[in-house]
Design a protein around this nucleic acid. Sequence first.
DNA 1: TAACTCACATAACTATAGTGAAGATTTAGA
DNA 2: TCTAAATCTTCACTATAGTTATGTGAGTTA
Lengths: 201, 201
Amino acid sequence: MTTESSTTAPPATSELLATVGNKVRSMRKEKGMTLAKLSEITGLSQAIVSQIERGMANPSFTTLAQLAHGLDIPVGRFFIGQEQSKSPVVRRSARRNLNNVTRESVGEAVHELLTPDRDGTIEAQWISTPPGHDTSATPFTHSGEEFCYIISGRKDVYLDGVCYSLEKGDSITYPAETPHWYKNSYEEVCVAIWVNAPHKW
Amino acid sequence: MTTESSTTAPPATSELLATVGNKVRSMRKEKGMTLAKLSEITGLSQAIVSQIERGMANPSFTTLAQLAHGLDIPVGRFFIGQEQSKSPVVRRSARRNLNNVTRESVGEAVHELLTPDRDGTIEAQWISTPPGHDTSATPFTHSGEEFCYIISGRKDVYLDGVCYSLEKGDSITYPAETPHWYKNSYEEVCVAIWVNAPHKW
DNA sequence: TAACTCACATAACTATAGTGAAGATTTAGA
DNA sequence: TCTAAATCTTCACTATAGTTATGTGAGTTA
């Protein structure tokens, strides 16, 4: 066990261990498995599984991987946080404007938030892009996965320089780490929904 | 180190360790930190950080938590998988129908997939719900977070029995573990985009 | 060139994770 | 209610994670 630095103790590690342990036990019970069965499947001793479930052990990465495999889940599932959302609804009339450009503005894209805040797994925006609007000067790159659905009009989406021309009803999905930008080379306003889901636990 | 059970070896653990290690090193370098700096912040020795980065150590949960804290990221971020998408675009005319109900059908909801497949972080569906359609008999509950945007028409979304009436331009976001269902109690078809982002690593 | 500094890696030792066996508790059936 | 079986927990020991001290390599300076 490492000596905790006085400058930077991580948040309550024993709480995290207890949380993970509770998850393991509840998942095991949901699957109707005994400790013995999970022990057999994972190749871990019953003793360590019991201790982990009760938050009394500090399992190594490999042990966690074996547990995840035994429970048939991805490793990261152990670290999922429970997020409490406020009101889940965002009304058309009450959307938060993200860039101080209103619908009456000329020549600039309008960005409005469709999710209650920017803290959830999903962040969704309604974006209206006028003809000629072009973000190629400042390509975006950020974490997560991004999805776009064209409600009306057309726009060109560039992923790492590759152009995808999208029209009403089309959609596109890509890792947001890819440098991306868009352009409305057409005559009419393009309205689209953009959704980003960060890898967040 | 546990003895690997002959019945169920987890997938290549050393590969997972190497992947995590690479992530730690790249994140550290992105932040412009030396091993010494990260060691100081985390309270871990330089030696173990070096070994972890090179995939030569099997860190305990607590050690991973300290690293995450030092890099200012959630613990689960270490386990993110890199997903390679195929063509990122789904054309309106080429959407995959999810429930063998076509647009010409009467009285049933039409579900079409907007994302290239169902393996990504984000899964998006275009759903057209006719008047009177009601899923309350079979509430949904699944993992992840869910977002819905109403393109046209109206529908009522129920979260754990609480009704939210949505109309064109409204949206709603909630944890998908909440029992949820919807109902079109109105006179016209409701068209909406539904997005689910599972906690997937 | 030699000496120094910095960043990272290695080696031997200490602290702790994980085990097998035994003990304790819970459950099911008579 | 009692008993046996099933399930979970504890204990002492073994295997390994994490530490301290040292080594290595690259770059800079005099």
